[in-house]
Design a protein around this nucleic acid. Structure first.
Ligand code: ZN
Ligand code: ZN
Ligand code: ZN
Ligand code: ZN
Lengths: 167, 167
DNA sequence: GTCCCTGCTGTTATATTGTAACCGCAACGG
DNA sequence: CCGTTGCGGTTACAATATAACAGCAGGGAC
C-alpha cells in the first residue's frame, strides 16, 4: 500500500521520530543490547527488518518491509512477519492495530505504565507516550468485571500538533 | 476464519451478551429509533447485517456476515462492508481493531466517556465498558503533545472472569 | 565421529480482510 | 420528463496474514 511517510526527508518541517541516522543507530544499539541481555538472537534478517523500521520516518506496513528489503534480495512476506513477531515479543517494536503498521519502540516500558499511541491521520506519524494513570484506570476498569488483561492496545487517531499548526 | 462463538448456544455456562432473542430485539428496536431520530435509512440490508450481529453470541468478522447472509441470497463482501460502515457511522456497532470483528453497541455513549473493550482470548467474547476517568486521562495525555484526538481505540486482550473461573 | 534436536529461514501456496469501478434502479423534486 | 441522490448489485482486485513443508547450521548426547 505504501504506508511509509511521504513527508520530505531531510526537511525539518515538523516533529518526527527515528529517521535521523543518529536515532536509528541508537535504536539498533538498544535492540542489540536487549537481545544480548535476554539471550535472543538478533539475526541478520531480524536486524534488517528492525533497521528499516528504525530508519523510517513513520510506521511501516509489513509489505512495505517486504518491498524495501526485497530490493537487495527477494524476501517473502512470511519471513518478514516472522521477524516482526520476534521483534514484538522482544518488546523492540509495536504494532498499530488501527493501521496494521509497525514501528520501533521509542523508550523503555515500565511495568505500571500503559503505552498510548497517537496516530496522526494527516501525516501518518505515530507518537508513543506512557501513562501510569491510564494503566491504573484500565486495571480498575477491567477489575470491575473480573477481567484479567494480558495485553493492551490504546490508540488515538487524530491530528498531531505540527499538522494542526500548518492547518 | 469463523470468528463466531463456538460457545454452546442455549447453555448458560458463562456470562455472555446479546444472544438472547430478547436482547437482540431490544438492540434492533434501539437501532430503529436511532435511525429515525437521525434521519438515517435503516434499509433491509443494513437491518439484516445488524440483526446478525445482534443475534450473535460474540463479535463477527465481515466474512462471517457474508457467509451467514449468503445462505438466503448471495451477498458480496463490499455490500457487507458498506452496511458495516453505515452502522459504525451511526454509532450502532463497534469494530474491534485487535480482531477485525464487529459487534453491536451495548449502550449509550456519553460525550465525556471513552469506551473500553475487553476482548477475551479464550471465549472470544467482548465486553464494552465506559470510563470517564480514562477519557480524561487520554485527553490529558494527548494534550501534553498538542495532539487532537478524533477517535479512540482502547482494547484490552486477556481472560474474562467466567473463563478464568473455569480455568 | 554420528545422531538427534532445536531454532531460523527459504519456498510455495493459500487464507483472510478490505476496496475500486461501474452500473442499474428507485425516490424525489424540478 | 429529467437530473440528482442514495442504495446496493456485480466484477474484479488489493492488502494483510498464515499454513505446510524443507533445508541447514549449531550444539549436545552418545
Ligand atoms: Zn514502546
Ligand atoms: Zn501529523
Ligand atoms: Zn458502544
Ligand atoms: Zn472468556
Amino acid at each position: 500500500m505504501g504506508k511509509g511517510q511521504a513527508a520530505p526527508e531531510g526537511a525539518h518541517a515538523h516533529h518526527h521520530h527515528h529517521h535521523e541516522p543518529h536515532e536509528a543507530e541508537q535504536l539498533i544499539a538498544h535492540a542489540e543490547q536487549v537481545c544480548r541481555e535476554k539471550g535472543l538472537q538478533f539475526t541478520p534478517l531480524r536486524r534488517r527488518v528492525f533497521e528499516r523500521l528504525a530508519a523510517s520516518a513513520g510506521p511501516l506496513g509489513a509489505y512495505d518491509l517486504v518491498e524495501q528489503l526485497g530490493r537487495e534480495r527477494r524476501i517473502s512476506p512470511i519471513s518478514v512477519y516472522r521477524a516482526l513477531e520476534f521483534l514484538m515479543e522482544a518488546g523492540l517494536i509495536h504494532r498499530i492495530a488501527l493501521r496494521n503498521t509497525y514501528l520501533p519502540c521509542a523508550h523503555e516500558h515500565g511495568a505500571g505504565e500503559t503505552t498510548v499511541f497517537l496516530v496522526c491521520s494527516t501525516c501518518g506519524n505515530v507518537d508513543e507516550l506512557a501513562s501510569s494513570e491510564i494503566a491504573r484506570d484500565l486495571a480498575g476498569t477491567a477489575a470491575q468485571v473480573g477481567f484479567r488483561p494480558v495485553s493492551r492496545a490504546v490508540e488515538l487517531e487524530g491530528e498531531c500538533q505540527s499538522c494542526r499548526e500548518s492547518e
